[in-house]
Design a protein around this nucleic acid. Structure first.
Lengths: 123, 123
DNA sequence: GCGAAGCTATTACACTTGTAGAAGGCTGTC
DNA sequence: GACAGCCTTCTACAAGTGTAATAGCTTCGC
């Protein structure tokens, strides 16, 4: 399951608050994105068609629930980046995560040590 | 600089062998992709327009060189995934990399320990 | 019961991406 | 010097993405 940028934003809103109506999603992401209601609705429809969400009518209003977990989506996004940009090799990707990151210097040093061990182990 | 799937494949070929002609790129990726020559050429033109490659005519043949380093492209791809799918938080992303990965069990355990420290540090 | 407000479904349109064919220009070889 | 082969540039087209307007149905408050 491949999610586009806009789809990620919508999915996050639904993961955070399940189930959600279109209105609720708009309230959640609207400030950030400036989207129109109908934009959100289109996204929700497309995500439902893709199988990422399920929808159920409650009265005359559709409520949407995730059909895939955030964890699965994240896992497959990482996997896909790994394959696309790093030839599937985990270690080099970790290495890039340790530069200029949000981790503390100590954390970064620790990761770096870990990677060195990985390298030595592979040799 | 955002690279699409196909663009990544082309860029990797050029990074591996600089500078490269369209024919060389095709030889490098053609087996894998089954692309036509003109497909590669289109990609190279688009990448040049985007500023990811520079091109220079050598005789009647264009040779392409990277204008951005593989490292920079990787870094920005990681950054972008981090923002899109993990709200910019490094630790959760690392956590997903430690499940079902190519790293050895020992490596994964080590990363897990590291993350635990990160969590405690943040508390 | 009627109007406002909210909901749905349909349609649209520009841009990006993947993929390539076609037409026309050089060049090396016989 | 003509033809094969390789190169370039132009054009195309379907699918996916971002973004939304619009039209018509429902419902709640007065």
């Amino acid at each position: 399951m491949r999610l586009s940028d806009a789809e990620w934003k919508v999915m996050k809103a639904v993961w955070d608050h399940q189930p959600s109506t279109a209105r609720q999603v708009l309230n959640s992401v609207g400030n950030d994105t400036g989207w129109a209601y109908s934009t959100v609705k289109t996204m929700l429809t497309r995500l439902t068609d893709k199988g990422a969400l399920s929808s159920e009518m409650r009265g005359n209003t559709a409520v949407y629930s995730p059909r895939i977990s955030q964890g699965d989506a994240q896992r497959s996004a990482v996997r896909s980046l790994l394959d696309r940009a790093f030839g599937g090799a985990m270690a080099p990707m970790l290495r890039f995560m340790t530069d200029g990151s949000d981790l503390s210097a100590a954390d970064r040093a620790a990761i770096r040590d870990l990677l060195q061990q990985t390298d030595e182990g592979a040799r």
